[in-house]
């Protein structure tokens, strides 16, 4: 081996050559390496997540019989209340279907829900990401919306065989249409706003932007206004909560509309489980991204 200096020179030269080769490597080649590394890591991530689940289960198993009995009783009560709700909702749904068929209104895309565990998560000043333990073999497709209960989490940004990456509702590049609570206009004339993620702010909770609020809009007094999905764009069903509008709206230059900031409805930093909504019919966004 030669002197360290010349060795460094050699390495740097090699590196520069590799870099040039990399830049001119066809996109497919680069995609291949990226996919390969994602796939190689998937089992270990999965293993890690499962181990954590196991630990959690073990922890729960350690709880005493009295504790379990109490929890079971609480659940039974909650269950009874929920069953009542389900019955109500079912009748509402059938009424809804009847009205819809009377109006010959287009049906929203139907979704199949897939429950997925969160395998890894990161939230730095520079990016936030979520890896879920469901992938191509479970039927997850790129662009599928991700929810937690009736709250919007984000959408699938990359799909691997066993895992997927989720782009959060606050990530730059996320965009969807929404209605705002407190917009007094009648149903058909409510003004639609756009919701989009924004560049992350250092060490702050992730937040997104609400744009094109009507100039006449003023938030309801006393409580933050909810931002909900419209169901018009084909990405989300209607009525899911995206977040709440933070106080303080900013007028756009020209004064034709206003912009605001929202806090996501789902606690993106402590989610353990999410639902992936897979449209039964493929949507255009799956090919257009």
């Amino acid at each position: 081996m030669s002197a360290p200096g010349s060795q460094l020179r050699g390495s740097i030269t090699a590196l520069a050559l590799l870099l040039v080769a990399w830049v001119f490597l066809p996109a497919a080649g680069r995609l291949f390496t990226r996919e390969t590394f994602a796939e190689l890591q998937a089992p270990s991530l999965s293993l890690l997540s499962r181990t954590r689940d196991l630990v959690l289960t073990a922890e729960m198993k350690a709880s005493g019989a009295a504790e379990l009995a109490a929890a079971g009783r609480d659940l039974a009560r909650a269950n009874a209340a929920l069953e009542l709700r389900v019955a109500e909702l079912e009748s509402a749904a059938s009424e809804n279907r009847r009205l819809r068929s009377m109006l010959a209104a287009p049906a929203f895309p139907e979704f199949r829900t897939l429950v997925a565990r969160v395998a890894a998560r990161e939230s730095g000043a520079w990016w936030s990401s979520l890896t879920i333990r469901r992938g191509r073999i479970d039927g997850v497709r790129k662009g599928c919306p991700v929810v937690f209960g009736d709250r919007v989490v984000g959408r699938v940004s990359a799909v691997h065989v066993n895992t997927s990456e989720v782009e959060l509702v606050t990530s730059p590049g996320f965009r969807c249409s929404a209605f705002i609570e407190g917009d007094d206009a009648p149903e058909g004339r409510r003004s639609m706003v756009f919701v989009e993620g924004q560049s992350p702010q250092p060490f702050a909770s992730p937040r997104g932007r609400v744009t094109y609020l009507p100039y006449t809009y003023s938030p309801p007094a006393g409580q933050p206004a909810k931002v909900v999905t419209t169901g018009l764009g084909g990405l989300y069903p209607a009525g899911l909560r995206i977040g709440t509008l933070s106080p303080g709206l900013e007028d756009t230059p020209g004064g034709a509309y206003r912009n605001g900031v929202f806090t996501p409805a789902a606690d993106l930093l402590s989610l353990r489980e999410v639902g992936v909504l897979i449209p039964t019919q493929p949507q255009p966004y799956e090919e257009l991204r």
């Binding site: 390495s11 590196l15 590799l18 390496t33 990226r34 590394f37 990161e122």
Partner: peptide, 28 residues
């Protein structure tokens, strides 16, 4: 590559940074 594959980093960025560091450390 393993580090960046799940993160919104330009593909190859972490790999080349680490390679450069490795080259420097190698020489020292």
């Amino acid at each position: 590559l393993a580090y960046e594959s799940r993160r919104p980093l330009p593909h190859g960025s972490a790999a080349f940074v680490l390679m450069a560091l490795a080259a420097v450390l190698q020489a020292n």
